[in-house]
């Protein structure tokens, strides 16, 4: 019990004193995840919109695959990325293994299906509203996708935030491909795993508080966005 109180108070001290390691790890986490989120959104959002407006032959299969990919265990994603990036793998020459880039790649693979799937669900509803009008106006497919992405931007932001939450809290895949190297690839989740293993509860708890804080912020943002969406403001 005294251990816990001791850990908590020292964790609190680390936080308020803006401990250098703590700040460095947090910033790296944010940089990796925000980069992954940006790239994943650029892929997933238009793809979700395309799935909503286009009727192509393998549409149902694509959606089923997308949903299945959402449940992919992150560690397995990490393993696959590892195999591709390792020295003997097809992309070995780039020397990306154990770099932040490798972690970004893994996170992109993990959150693209999630973001695309949520985006598709939201935009499908919007499309059933807009369908008749946009067909009647002779819009091109590109214009339809643009219109949906713009008018559905609130729901899409929610999808992106869900992706952020998943990516920032993920540990398995980035541990495998990043290697948790100090001052290089150590991020919030991998650092927590390491510090806990070492019995350094103060640092682990401080990192944990930051992670929890980020998760709460994201959830408040999602809540607020869906709220205003329902009220019909935007």
């Amino acid at each position: 019990m005294t251990d816990l109180w001791d850990g908590l108070s020292r964790a609190f001290f680390l936080l308020v004193s803006l401990d250098a390691d703590l700040v460095e790890i947090t910033l790296r986490s944010l940089r990796v995840t925000l980069t992954a989120l940006l790239i994943a959104s650029l892929i997933a959002l238009p793809f979700g919109a395309l799935l909503a407006v286009r009727r192509f032959r393998f549409r149902r299969t694509t959606i089923a695959v997308l949903n299945a990919l959402m449940g992919l265990p992150p560690v397995v994603v990490g393993l696959i990325v590892y195999v591709f990036l390792s020295r003997s793998g097809p992309f070995g020459v780039f020397g990306l293994l154990f770099t932040p880039t490798a972690m970004i790649i893994a996170q992109i693979i993990i959150i693209v299906p999630l973001i695309a799937s949520i985006a598709h669900q939201a935009l499908r509803e919007l499309w059933s509203d807009y369908h008749d009008l946009l067909i009647s106006m002779n819009t091109t497919h590109i214009q339809r996708i643009q219109t949906l992405l713009w008018d559905g931007r609130r729901a899409l932001l929610t999808a992106a935030l869900a992706g952020f939450g998943r990516a920032i809290g993920e540990v398995g895949a980035i541990m495998v491909v990043g290697g948790n190297i100090d001052h290089h690839t150590r991020v919030l989740t991998t650092a927590i795993a390491l510090e806990t293993g070492k019995g350094e509860f103060a640092m682990a708890l401080a990192l944990g508080f930051i992670l929890i804080g980020l998760a709460i912020l994201v959830n408040i943002a999602i809540h607020w966005l869906t709220q205003t969406e329902r009220e019909g403001r935007w």
Binding site: Y130, D132, S136, N138, G152, W234
Partner: peptide
Amino acid sequence: AQRRQSFVFQTPVMLRR
């Protein structure tokens, strides 16, 4: 012909703008 027509629906479609 398509380009030169417009249609007003029985239940108007409101773009969210």
